[in-house]
Amino acid sequence: MSEPLVFHYEVDGSDFTSAGTASVAVKKSLRQLGLPSEVIRKLSIAMYEGEINMVIHANGGTADVLVTEDYVDIILKDSGPGIPDVEKAMQEGYSTATAEIHSLGFGAGMGLPNMKRYSDEMSIETELGVGTTIKMRIHMN
């Protein structure tokens, strides 16, 4: 596995029930590759939170997963409204989601904190009115 393996997904922003399609697909592919189950679990949860965020806030986006021998990268990119206050958004419990989202079990203000919790490195680039790109890295060991 000298060249990184790349998986690319489009996240459909219109349909809340299909959120998670990409994460579940990645999980399946990485299982077939024989990656450690804890790495797969961390990655798929972090990615699912990202997918949910893109559906709630940004009308969808793209998700790319790069697998190398030493780490897995997840790059989530959207053309949504951007995050006005990243520091606030990173706080557990802070949410701007609507009541409808809450009724589905989301909007607990745990999305970004969970992404940080389950990745070893995380960076957020965001610009109001332009979009947000989040990069997460999970080490194999």
Binding site: F16, T17, S37, E38, Y48, E49, L104, G105, F106, M110
Partner: peptide, 23 residues
């Protein structure tokens, strides 16, 4: 709260909930 579950539940736990939607 699904994100709470994803942040706190351990692998191989039995998960008790009253939510029954697709998520």
């Amino acid at each position: 709260l699904l994100s709470w579950v994803m942040g706190r539940a351990q692998q191989d736990n039995a998960w008790i909930t009253i939510m029954s939607n697709i998520n």
